[in-house]
């Protein structure tokens, strides 16, 4: 059992490494073949051909941070839902009612967020 576990996750690690290796090999191969001839103009950041204005890390309104917060709540919920979904048949009615209450609370939260207008952009 434990051996199987180790083997499975060794496979995962090997595949992740294969992904890294693929990029590394490609970039390495290309490094041998490609020309390398930088000039100041070529190395300026792309802004449709005009000289760039200010820095690239300009101030941006990150409207999306609120979605990140919502996401966090729902993602944790998803983690709880999976074990429940697997065991639903064995536990039966009790699990069902329990999870209904849980989902209701979450939907209430989502409705509150929508009513509060976090999804509306003016």
């Amino acid at each position: 059992m434990f051996e199987q576990y180790v083997q499975d996750y060794t496979t995962v690690a090997a595949f992740a490494f294969l992904g890294l290796f693929l990029v590394g090999a490609g970039v390495g191969l290309s490094k041998v073949v490609r020309p390398h001839n930088p000039t100041p103009t070529k190395n300026s950041p792309y802004e449709c051909g005009v000289d760039p204005v200010g820095t690239g890390w300009s101030q941006t309104h990150i409207r999306y941070y609120i979605f990140a917060l919502l996401f966090l709540i729902f993602d944790v919920e998803a983690v709880f839902i999976f074990p429940w979904a697997v065991q639903l048949e064995t536990i039966g009615m009790f699990a069902l009612v329990e999870m209904l209450i849980f989902i209701m609370i979450l939907i209430a939260g989502l409705v509150y967020a929508i009513r509060k207008g976090v999804l509306k952009w003016e």
């Binding site: 992904g19 890294l20 693929l22 191969l29 073949v33 390398h36 190395n43 950041p45 760039p52």
Partner: peptide, 28 residues
């Protein structure tokens, strides 16, 4: 493969170079 790779002066070189590795690792 034969194309020159242009890395602009303004980039954060290490993170810039690392990004494709992370993307392909996740997919693989």
């Amino acid at each position: 493969i034969q194309k020159e790779e242009i890395i602009p002066d303004t980039v954060d070189v290490r993170v810039f170079k690392l990004a494709p590795y992370v993307v392909l690792m996740g997919t693989m």
